[in-house]
Amino acid sequence: MTKTNEAPHASGGPYGAFAYVYDRLMADMPYGEWLGWLDAYWSARGGRPSDVVDLGCGTGTLAIPLAREGSRVTGVDLSADMIEVARRKEAAVRSELAVPGELEWVVGDMREWRAPAPVDAVVSLCDCLNYLTEEADVARAFGSAFAALKPGGAFLFDMHHPNQLDAYMANEPFCHDDEEASYIWTCELDEETSTIAHRLTFFVRGADGRYDRSVETHRQRVYSEATIRKLLADAGFSGIETYADFTFDPIDDDETTRMFFAATKR
């Protein structure tokens, strides 16, 4: 039996109810590879930054390990529900493990948020920036990142390559099913705008044995490497580097599915 319901205190909208089951249903995401890429980048350039802003931090799965390594981390996310889950996760981790770095959680828009003091690094991973479906909004987010950085600071992020849209459409629908939670994830592509709509229908087993059903639609847009380079330069960044798929190899427009960018504020 199913019933339609939201998770307790869910605010609605993308990453509303979904926030409370996100970690369970997305456990196979390559978080270790994202953290490994950051560590390799920083190690090659003198070491880990002291102050980091994580834009689109979600449930804190990357921000918390960065704080465990000693950085002061500010996690920013548009979803109050994701931030609530991140706070709970931080408390659970601190109850069992040493977390030398400070953590601050902020409900905010990456296009508008301003750091109270300049930081050494801004990161935005897990294709968060693809949720900005207008170039003007990407430009605003880049401007915010630039404003937050100290001179010499780096903005590190990833975005889907246009090839990823083909991969989504070739492999959808995506499904997960276990006794506690399940989802069906379908995709609809608008080739004219290079935008994809992800429709997630998920079911979570409640304490009474019944399943709560929720539906969310998330939209992402892909941009070319050249477009992102231009927007970064327009925001004031220099020394722009691009890499492919968790490596430091150049982007291959035939093979790459995830582009990594590193841009410096001089």
Rank of each mutant, 00 (worst) to 15 (best):
G206C: 08
A207V: 08
A207R: 04
A207I: 05
A207F: 06
A207H: 00
D208P: 00
G209R: 00
R210Y: 15
R210A: 14
R210E: 14
Y211F: 13
Y211W: 08
Y211Q: 01
Y211D: 06
Y211N: 03
D212E: 14
D212A: 13
D212I: 11
R213V: 15
R213D: 14
S214P: 00
S214N: 09
S214C: 07
S214F: 10
V215E: 03
E216F: 08
E216N: 01
E216P: 04
T217F: 05
T217H: 05
H218G: 04
R219T: 14
R219P: 02
R219A: 13
Q220I: 05
Q220R: 02
Q220D: 06
V222N: 04
V222W: 04
V222H: 05
Y223G: 10
S224D: 05
S224E: 06
E225P: 07
E225F: 10
E225C: 10
E225S: 12
A226H: 10
A226D: 10
A226L: 07
T227I: 13
T227R: 15
I228M: 04
I228A: 01
I228D: 05
I228G: 01
I228C: 06
I228Y: 06
I228R: 07
I228S: 02
I228T: 09
R229N: 13
R229L: 11
K230A: 15
K230D: 15
K230S: 13
K230L: 13
K230E: 15
L231S: 09
L231D: 08
L232Y: 09
L232F: 12
L232C: 06
L232T: 10
L232I: 15
L232K: 03
A233M: 10
A233N: 08
D234F: 10
D234E: 13
D234I: 15
A235R: 02
A235C: 08
A235E: 04
G236K: 06
G236D: 04
F237Q: 01
S238L: 15
S238C: 15
G239E: 15
G239V: 10
G239K: 03
G239R: 06
I240R: 00
I240C: 05
E241F: 11
E241S: 10
T242F: 06
Y243N: 07
Y243P: 04
Y243L: 08
Y243G: 09
A244R: 03
D245E: 03
D245K: 02
D245W: 05
D245Q: 05
F246I: 06
F246A: 02
T247H: 03
T247M: 00
T247G: 01
T247R: 01
T247P: 00
F248G: 05
F248N: 08
D249P: 07
D249N: 15
P250I: 08
P250Y: 12
P250G: 09
I251E: 02
I251T: 07
I251P: 00
I251H: 02
